[in-house]
Design a protein around this nucleic acid. Structure first.
Length: 421
RNA sequence: GCCGGGGUAGCCAAGUGGUAAGGCGGCUGUCUCGAAAACAGCUACGUGAAAGCGUGCAGGGGCUCGAAUCCCUUUCCCGGCGCCA
């Protein structure tokens, strides 16, 4: 959600944002609803004032033991009229907020303007792409040969885009998680294992309507939705709270499974465990003072870069264009890791600053002193590890001539000093 | 799951149908060389240029001229019992 005052005072700024994102949004209606909404507030407030005055009169007459029947009739009329006004006001408020909830976030000035990923900008590149002196396999073939993944039975039991991890790949998955948590704990993140299902209000605060349809699974007959990432549960964690300024920034490392419909991805990455309905993830989530959020954004990216350098995964950092970026984000870096089997860099991390967009929806505020006006804080999120994608990268980049997988050095101690799968 | 007790402002807390007590913490002002103390005002959200006005007593609904208060319902917390990995 954007600041209604900003929309009212600088509609031109909003129009530019919509154009940069190539988003079709009925801004004129929103402005009109907002204006009507304000008019109704004034009208109903006036009537309420009258009602309070009459109620006081009644109370005084009754206390004095006088007859109040003529005023009672007057009061009944005011009450009826007020009910009508309130219904109308509620209806216009609903129209306004429903539309306001679908407007995308502002776009930071450093974001390249463009319609899709072709306008993304490469910022950095790290690591040497591995050079193989044998014919390499993709992760599907490797995992079949070593009995590490069973896709066929998963399809039978759950459907497409599911998998059974098996044997040492299960251990490698757990090792990645363990290593990632230790890594963030050292950076003074608080570790959080959130609820894997959250209610509608919380989900709507963290996610924009389109994504709701395309990625979020709903639990039948319950007000519960499966989280698409721990970001969703962590964003809502402090909803409706006023945080003390001295406690900011709050840095959390969330670990959870992630559940995604992948409804818009038909035909893409159809095979293997690269794009799946369920995977484990460690996520960085930061609640920050507004003035610090850009600094925090770069800091999160730095942590990600350091992590993948230690893991020895060649990668590049992409700055997403206005058209490719998610609607809740004002600026997003993707980190793309090398996947030898695809001979390509593929997305493994997404690192975003959402400014006060989620905070407004979730009413997360802060202040330094108790009498000070509250201010919305800024929220930021970044993947540290989406395990399945990192597993693909490790399997493909670290494969050996004899068909095995070398375990990255930093993970070996987590695997009982095992060096190879 | 059952029985009982609860949810009032940043925190504590009074209030059984007629304008939301009080305290703590905080801010500003007066005073002071400065501070403390004392005193006064302010200390949720909306609207408004402002004065002000309105809303707000866990959420939703109802009865009533009028609801923090009565009724229904949902939810969360505490205690007890039951069940359970």
């Amino acid at each position: 959600m954007l600041d209604p005052k900003l929309i009212k005072e600088k509609p031109q700024l909003i129009r530019e944002m919509l154009k940069a994102r190539s988003v079709d949004f009925d801004l004129d209606s929103l402005i009109e609803f907002d204006q009507k909404r304000r008019e109704f507030i004034i009208k109903t407030d006036e009537l309420r004032k009258k009602k309070n005055q009459v109620a006081l009169e009644i109370s005084q007459k009754k206390k004095a033991g006088e007859d109040a029947s003529s005023i009672l009739a007057k009061m009944k009329n005011i009450s009826n009229e007020l009910t009508k006004f309130e219904l109308e006001q509620e209806s216009i408020e609903n129209k306004y907020s429903k539309l306001a909830m679908t407007i995308p976030n502002l776009v930071h000035e450093s974001v390249p303007v463009g319609v899709d990923e072709s306008a993304n900008k490469e910022i950095k590149k790290w690591g040497k792409i591995p050079d193989f002196d044998f014919k390499i396999k993709d992760h599907i073939e490797i995992s079949e040969n070593l009995d590490l993944v069973d896709l066929e039975r998963a399809a039978k039991v759950a459907g497409a885009r599911f998998y059974y991890l098996k044997n040492d790949l299960v251990r490698l998955n757990q090792s990645l998680i363990h290593y990632g948590l230790d890594f963030l704990a050292k950076k003074e993140y608080s570790l959080v294992q959130p609820p894997y299902m959250i209610n509608r209000k919380s989900m709507e605060g963290a996610v924009i309507a389109d994504d709701f349809e395309d990625v979020i699974y709903k639990v039948e007959d319950e007000d519960l939705f499966m989280i698409g990432t721990s970001e969703h549960a962590m964003a809502a964690m402090h909803s409706k709270e006023i945080i003390e300024g001295k406690d900011l920034p709050l840095r959390y490392a969330g670990v959870s499974p992630c559940f995604r419909k992948e409804a818009g991805a038909h035909g893409r990455d159809q095979k293997g465990i690269f794009r799946v309905h369920q995977f484990d993830k460690i996520e960085q989530f930061v609640f920050s003072r507004p003035e610090d959020s850009w600094k925090e954004h770069e800091k999160m990216l730095g942590i990600v870069e350091e992590f993948y350098q230690e893991l020895e995964i060649p990668h590049k950092v992409m700055l997403l264009s206005s058209g490719d970026m998610g609607k809740i984000s004002a600026k997003t870096y993707d980190v793309e890791g090398w996947m030898a089997g695809q001979n390509a860099y593929r997305e493994i991390v997404s690192c975003s600053n959402c400014l006060d967009f989620q905070a407004r929806r979730l009413k997360i505020r802060f202040r330094d002193k108790t009498n000070e006006d509250t201010q919305y804080l800024h929220t930021l999120n970044s993947t540290l590890i989406a395990t399945t994608r990192v597993l693909v990268s490790i399997m493909e980049n670290f494969q050996t001539k004899d068909g095995h997988i070398r375990i990255p050095t930093v993970l070996q101690s987590y695997m009982g000093n095992q060096k190879e799968i």
